[in-house]
Amino acid sequence: MAFRKSIRSRRGRRKIHKDFELQLTSMMDILVIILVFLLKSYSTSTNSFSTVPGIKLPISKTDNSPPDSLHLIITPQAITFESNRIVEFVQTADALNGNEPKYDLKTEDTDENGMRIKLLFSALEEARNKAEALRQKSPARDKDGNPLPFDGILAIQADKAVKYDILRKVMYTAGAAQFRVFRMLAMKQDQ
């Protein structure tokens, strides 16, 4: 049966005229419309900030495109620095009572009255040392001939639900590692 069908279909295929031409005009129209739309809404980014799945960024009205810098991501579950997961939070007991789950740092992960995150501090210090070593080797110098100072800029990308308590511990730790400027990332609001 299947054999007969295949013969029939092959015969049917032969019926197509040799001078048959596919009408491409309508397809061209669609493609041109897509192209115009893409060109209109085209935007490129000069930074290489990645994100993690599931993170919900807040929306901001500002229009400052963030330049490349060291990048820290805070999700409700963990802290990631330069694509390395540094600290994982623990779930507090609130979730057991049917409330919204809350996350906090483990006591052994912090020092200085729970303000400095130890593993994050080590990672930030290492990044600063690396950046300073690169600047020493770089031919770029200031007017006195010294290597350019460490800029100390840290881009922070946090989930909109992350609490200030965690955020300030991160900023405190970064401040201890001589980071002086924090760039808080958000999604640009459509104009």
Partner: peptide, 25 residues
């Protein structure tokens, strides 16, 4: 040419438009 251009644009387009607010220590 159109298919190539559309593919290029879609590949290089930044779909996530980020902005920043700066705060010094």
């Amino acid at each position: 040419a159109l298919v190539t251009m559309i593919s290029f644009l879609m590949y290089t387009m930044a779909f996530l438009s980020l902005t920043m607010v700066e705060s010094p220590l």
